[in-house]
Design a protein around this nucleic acid. Sequence first.
DNA 1: GGATTCCACTTACGGCGTAAGCTTGTCAAC
DNA 2: GTTGACAAGCTTACGCCGTAAGTGGAATCC
Lengths: 213, 213
Amino acid sequence: MTPRRREPLSRDRVVASALALVELHGVEALSMRKLAAELGVEAMSLYNHVANKDDVLDAIAEVVFADVALPPPTADWRVDARALADAFRAAALAHPRTASLSLARQLGYPAVPVTEAALDVLARAGFDPEQAVHASRTLLAYVIGTLLREIGSGPPDETREPALVATGLPRVAEAARHLAVCHHEAEYRFGLDLVLDALALRAVGAAGGPSAR
Amino acid sequence: MTPRRREPLSRDRVVASALALVELHGVEALSMRKLAAELGVEAMSLYNHVANKDDVLDAIAEVVFADVALPPPTADWRVDARALADAFRAAALAHPRTASLSLARQLGYPAVPVTEAALDVLARAGFDPEQAVHASRTLLAYVIGTLLREIGSGPPDETREPALVATGLPRVAEAARHLAVCHHEAEYRFGLDLVLDALALRAVGAAGGPSAR
DNA sequence: GGATTCCACTTACGGCGTAAGCTTGTCAAC
DNA sequence: GTTGACAAGCTTACGCCGTAAGTGGAATCC
């Protein structure tokens, strides 16, 4: 009576399953056979919809950038820059294991709208196109560096602080209490403010106000 | 007459060969069998010296940090901070393919001396231990983000600029000329100066001068 | 000289990505 | 209603992979 035993396979279904598997068990656990099994199908059937395994990995990496919810512009470019960085960060943290893939691979076309938004913010801040490219890359480098640390760090580890003290290095021992913990969110904000402050200085110097430099 | 047909295997020789292979052909091309062949030995013999493949990868990732040539302190903390960042960057670029491994994995004990140096620089800049931890992580996040882009980007691609213009996005099209090229060194310096400027402001506000905030 | 220890070797297993070919269900054209 | 083409599943097979388990010969110590 059921007209169809199951949903037909499709590239989208394959990619969605792959993303789910990677988030559950990590990239290294993804195999074409397990992916097929997840979809109730044999491995080779996947090749009717994707070119090969690398194609699958590329596809799930792109999803992360496609998921960046670009914030609408306001009158204040600093607010917008922060919102854009936050949106990028949120998209990455929504799929952390896939995000490390996305960040490592070269950012392809799905990242272009993000670039557009960044360049627009920085143009409104007063940068000319060339400076805006440099500034956007600086901002992105910081956000990505932060994300990499956050994604890579496992659960809190009780043994880290004593181990750091035991190194005998004075500055490390002195700061061991702070090195052992990771307030990722707060640290991200600290550095982001810092970078934005610096960009604001450069923007003023470049175009807007009468300030020095 | 030769007392020994060949050098005996050792963990160091295995790790050195693995590093060389990874730099030549990439991580994904490293297998225990090829590594053994490179050493004139069968695959299973490697397991007398390393625990497993992951152990090998950890070991080569550590080499990168071990190779950071920590610069001697001077009287100017900004000079020292820049020198430290440069040294880190140089070590990573000396083994680019291994470095992406190192940066992705959580930075382990070989990275501790680098942390010590960073904290020392920032303490001399006037940060208290907690602020110094935040500041060093910000600085490192920027340097790592930059490195990731530089390492990930392949050779220059002639077709990128027209492709960017063709997206129809106004800011991207306007800046396509600058987005298509990668002056990695110059861009690294631009952002590093920017971050250091911002850190200098915070340092003054935190401890040294009579300035505001 | 016999025992012990080291270390490379052989064999084997299960899992991997995917090339090549086969089967089956669907549907348009006659 | 039959036929033929095609899409999309399945099966088989190959050569890789990491590594568990066991073998054998040389060097080292009593």
